[in-house]
Write a protein that binds this DNA or RNA. Structure first.
Lengths: 228, 228
DNA sequence: CGAGTCGTTGAAAGAATTCAACTTGTGTGG
DNA sequence: CCACACAAGTTGAATTCTTTCAACGACTCG
């Protein structure tokens, strides 16, 4: 990883902080560059601090055995990374890998913890942020437990469009493999592949090599509904 | 639900608060009594505040359709309840039902939010609490996605013993049905039932009507391991 | 041009749920 | 106290869904 310039205003952390602190953080942060596929940190690595994605996108995952992983979330410019390591935990409970070439600001735990002690507005906001993340996680837990595979893949597609948006020709603006979609939906590559074919035949989605376009959100959403 | 006395010291919230606040909270909290099976709040109810369990135990769940639910966690004396409703959310994203006759302290959101603004130590602790909960949720997400059913049920049993401990004859000290265990492990009643028989034959557990004794934690844990 | 990797596909195997039937237990009313 | 009805617990069989496996074709890189 390589150092690079960082616009402090783009950081999640900065976006709601008192101006005085913006100057402080500007002195303490470092910015790193990650190549596509490069690990930002791995599960089990010692926690050193917290990252803010400046450009690019990242997957956050948990490993299961050698081969399988569950992608917990996708993070893009402006998002926090590594905040799961807060609070006395010595090892990251999750791993993060760049999906495309990305830049990330790094703030050491020491500085962050010290800041949280004095900047209460930040602590409060961060608490709310965690609360929201927790809700999302629990929603997804339920989906993984009870929703069937097709529903989860459909959800994953809608979620991806939500997070990354679409580019000029309406394709989801994400650099993402079918394998990653499978890992996000908690299923296998083949299942995703076959379901995509099915969706393409029904013209619900269009796949163009790597990228995906959603033509009919409503019908896609039907798969997420509980069957009677 | 019925009002009852509450020892303020037993509240999670109080346990790490400045003494001055203990007095304040004593004036603002209310204590309610819930019968076994009674709902403390339901998914979709308007968020009014936060609860602390004083005695008894509670299941926190998310509904899926009419019949199915995923139990997110079991809470017992000293635990927080309803904190998922913090942060501008107008409806509880989860429901909570008493597993046995229970008492819970209630603190209104207004008072809590006001307190968080002034009692920064509390905010900080609460933030850490959320961070830990988030980690647990994500661990369980992975398990639900990739671990097979037997592993999840085995985990559930160990977790239950962890949370509720054992009574004099080594049985897990929890009032819990097989259906609830199934809902916690994200599976069906029948599957749990059959697996319990299997475990009992192997003498890994002993079931005595409602209550369960774990004889061989190691072998039980084997089910949670990734198969090669 | 050949090796190897990745994407694609169909068939088989396996796991879990669903369904339906049967048994046991519980409570109520005669 | 017994008989009956209803709910809860137990069980096996069948179905369904998903994964796994293996094979084939296309594409890329050396």
């Amino acid at each position: 990883m390589q150092e690079a310039a960082c616009n402090v205003n783009s950081c999640f952390l900065c976006s709601f902080c008192i101006p005085a602190w913006k100057e402080a953080i500007a002195l303490h942060k470092k910015t790193y560059q990650f190549k596509k596929g490069e690990d930002i940190f791995r599960e089990g690595d010692p926690v050193k601090g917290i990252y803010f994605i400046y450009t690019g996108s990242v997957k956050v995952y948990k490993q299961w055995g050698e081969q399988k992983q569950l992608i917990l979330r996708f993070a893009k410019a402006g998002d926090i990374l590594g905040h799961r390591g807060l609070g006395g935990v010595v090892e990251y409970p999750i791993g993060a890998t760049a999906l495309e070439d990305s830049k990330a600001c790094f703030i050491s735990n020491d500085f962050l913890e010290a800041t949280l002690k004095t900047n209460h507005e930040l602590t409060y906001k961060l608490m709310h942020f965690y609360a929201t993340e927790l809700q999302k996680a629990e929603m997804r837990m339920r989906d993984l437990a009870h929703m069937e595979v097709k529903g989860r893949v459909a959800e994953a597609l809608l979620e991806l469009r939500n997070i990354f948006g679409v580019n000029h020709d309406q394709h989801i603006a994400a650099t993402i493999t079918r394998q990653d979609i499978a890992s996000y939906a908690g299923t296998t590559y083949e299942t995703v592949f076959k379901f995509f074919n099915e969706l393409a035949e029904e013209k619900i989605i269009t796949t163009n090599g790597k990228s995906i376009k959603i033509n009919d959100s409503d019908r896609l959403q039907q798969f997420s509904k509980k069957q009677s």
